[in-house]
Design a protein around this nucleic acid. Sequence first.
DNA 1: CCTCCACAGGAAGCGCAGGAGT
DNA 2: ACTCCTGCGCTTCCTGTGGAGG
Length: 401
Amino acid sequence: MPDSFKEILSRESVFVKRDVLSPHYIPGKLPHREKEIERVMRSVSPALEGGKPRNLFIYGKTGTGKTSTVKYVLNKLQEEESGKSAPISFINCRLYGSRYKVMQKIVQDHIPDFAKPGYGISFFYERLLDWIEKDGKQLIVVLDEVDMVKDLDDLLYTLTRSNDDLKKGGVSLLGISNRLNFKEKLDPRSMSSLLETEIVFSPYNSRELASILDARSKTGFAKGAVEESAINLASAIAAQETGDARYALKLLLRGGEIADERGERPVTDKHVEEARKSVDEGVATDAISTLPDHQQIVLYAISKLTLRGSRYSRLGNGDSDGENYLLSGEVYEDYVDSSKKFHKMPRSARWFRQYLNDLEMLGLITMVDSGKGQRGHTRFIKIAYSAEKVRDIVEKQLMGG
DNA sequence: CCTCCACAGGAAGCGCAGGAGT
DNA sequence: ACTCCTGCGCTTCCTGTGGAGG
């Protein structure tokens, strides 16, 4: 318990430059991505000499450094080529998820005068061609999370076709995606245009993660403020999950915050261990509060019944492990009641089943098929997180609003 | 053995909001 | 700015499934 604000302020933090630990920070050096950086540079380099870069496609799971690598290379490109012959549009397709929006964004980036809404695609297209031809520019369009574009075939067609319509200059594409299987849905023609070159980013292993964390903590943390074992644990946990560098960074950052809150000085693996709980809980809270209302209500019904105990408590005799499993029928009944409580019209039983499947996909509940000992064919449902917490989150979410 | 139970999940169709085209 | 179109969330209807009960 601090005696005064003065004490809190004078207390030394383990951080010296906190934002270095943030996942958005792009360090001056990207460890373990040297090969990838070189390949991206190689494919972009023709732009420096007025040539058309090859189209490039990058895959890799989240937190493997795809976006950072591309941003790093493009920053370098703009530094070395301070002229205006290789303009860049960096587009996050989660925000600009259609051909129209992407085209509009490109125009807005470079010729904002014409970016008013209401114009058709063909208008944007021709303005853009004029602008590129003017002094033979080499436009580079980066499509981050490219799988989020609804009419991707059309977009790719439009952009690659522009090279045929241009007398001078060119447009090249750089696509980034974390889903490997999405190209199956693509038109073979747009596939071959996008996949001229392909780079796969593999997940970091725990040693690589450790050296990344180590490098960042050297500038982010105060000297001696973080123990090596803490870094190793954070890397090991993240490597075990998916090799996600963002997750590893979060663990370390949160661990530092926890240590600060208690005024403890070196960040140890104990802090990281607790950070893991807190981070995972935060993820669950986020996942729940962004859920559609009715899925939240289903979760609410499940958590309520879990706390009260199943009405049909006769599970297979002797199966003492099966505590707190609920039947989908009784959950539906409570879901209908709970919907009324939150002033919502309950959905049909068919759609309720769909909700259950969605929630299972998100890892918020688990289900097993009813075996012996149960009349009829149903599923046993169990909540994956603390029932009290889930109930409170949903209540807060749906009551005040 | 057949029937019933208590569901699972596919198919078809419907109304609506928002995006595309004019 | 206006209409047309499409995708999405949802309902209704239906067939399937595996054990219980008679």
